[in-house]
């Protein structure tokens, strides 16, 4: 028997074992039609309460754990704000790594000449990265980021300080709402969907919570009013 056959046989043995284990189960739905019916009639999941003010709920929940949030009055104010936030006070240049995101492209960067924007994938030595959130979830205070040109996954995990821009309208109440948006956004899932709710942290030494282990040491969310469309 060749390798391919052995593999097929192992697959069949596992699936065969599973099949005979569940066949007589009262909850087992043997036909595709029965399963389809189950999914049609399945009640939606219970959810914890989130309150009406989604921006408020989101901000307070994400700040419960070591992240910081600021609200700006306009999108135009973003470059200047980042220059102040990331600057050291001395007149040095600030290197800011971003993905190829048209939403970031259109910001008035000329108002912050000290920022040197590098549009690329982040490398291990990069200090500050900027991403724009795909959406955010109020329920758990989570930012949702999708892999791709606009925000390579490296940019979310390799930089020391991660700044995330979030439009007010992109805050949804529940994880289910985020999944709905992701499904609607493209014909197929991006390779990575990341729910980010704080900076990288660990409790592995002495049961003490320490921020900044492998990923970003700080997470700063900038909430802006949504674009008038």
């Amino acid at each position: 028997m060749n390798e391919q056959d052995v593999r097929k046989q192992d697959r069949e043995k596992i699936l065969g074992g599973v099949r005979s284990a569940v066949r007589k189960d009262p909850g087992h739905l043997a036909s595709v039609e029965d399963l389809a019916k189950y999914w049609k009639s399945r009640p939606s999941a219970p959810r914890p309460p989130v309150g009406d003010d989604l921006v408020e709920t989101f901000s307070s929940r994400i700040q419960e754990f070591a992240s910081t949030v600021v609200r700006l009055d306009s999108l135009e104010a973003v470059p200047r704000y980042i220059a102040e936030y990331a600057g050291t006070g001395e007149d040095e240049n600030i290197t800011l790594v971003t993905g190829e995101d048209p939403r970031l492209e259109n910001l008035p960067w000329d108002t912050a000449p000290e920022i040197r924007r590098e549009v690329r994938k982040a490398e291990r030595t990069d200090n500050i990265g900027l991403s724009q959130a795909f959406c955010a979830v109020a329920e758990s205070g989570s930012i949702v980021l999708l892999s791709g040109k606009a925000d390579p996954t490296s940019n979310d995990f390799l930089v020391d300080r991660h700044i995330i821009l979030l439009a007010e309208d992109d805050i949804v109440p529940y994880h289910e709402d985020a999944w709905k948006r992701i499904r609607e956004a493209g014909s197929s899932m991006p390779r990575a969907v990341n729910f980010i709710s704080g900076p990288s942290s660990t409790g592995d030494v002495d049961l003490t919570l320490q921020v900044g282990v492998h990923g970003p040491r700080t997470l700063h969310v900038v909430i802006v009013p949504s674009n008038p469309s």
Partner: peptide, 24 residues
């Protein structure tokens, strides 16, 4: 597990990098 509402990262990965993806 930890008494947190959620962990810092909850991530879903699958497939190799897609066409045009800069990493993965």
């Amino acid at each position: 597990a930890t008494g947190q509402p959620i962990t810092s990262y909850v991530s879903f990965f699958g497939g190799p990098r897609k066409q045009g993806d800069p990493d993965g």
